[in-house]
Amino acid sequence: MAAKSTWSEQVHRVLRTQNVRQIGYVPDSGLKRIIELVRADKKMCAVSLTTEEEGIALATGAWLGGERSAVLMQSSGVGNCINMLGMAIECRIPLLMIVTMRGQWAEFNPWQMPMAQATAAVLGAMGVIVQNVEAPDDIAETVAAAGKLAFNTNRAVAVAIAQRAIGTKAFK
């Protein structure tokens, strides 16, 4: 019996099926596997960013040039994007953000708390549609739905993957 695929493998397949080619990212431990899969995929163009807002601008340029893009980040990175999101919203750029949450389930690091707890609110305030996902088995389906929403209706959509789904980072 083949081992059940992980959510990272499933999401990678979704991105591939939906022709998402440029993938910007700033790492999070929860994103480790999907970043490896994207980097290994010759049909994709992985772009390591110095700050998450670069990914919003990258996605804008990609769409102007006829390509789909997604941005992967930790919840703290959402704070780095706020003003740049204004461009994506004003231009009605389809934007797919995959955000792994910290500062939730059994968090150890208090410095993660303020931004994590504000993440959904600030995205919402900017006009980004937020789709939360709690169960690992629902992640790929949620990303697929978010991608359709983004690329079919020219909207900015963020999938917020709960810390509980990924596992709490252990400091040891």
Binding site: V47, E54, I56, A57, L58, T60, G61, E67, S69, M87
Partner: peptide, 24 residues
């Protein structure tokens, strides 16, 4: 593509576009 905001975006918009349109 004129930007009127998104200060700091220009070079990265250029990168996304350049990657999408390698012949241009």
């Amino acid at each position: 593509f004129y930007t009127w905001g998104g200060m700091g975006c220009a070079a990265m918009v250029g990168l996304g576009l350049a990657l999408a349109q390698p012949k241009r």
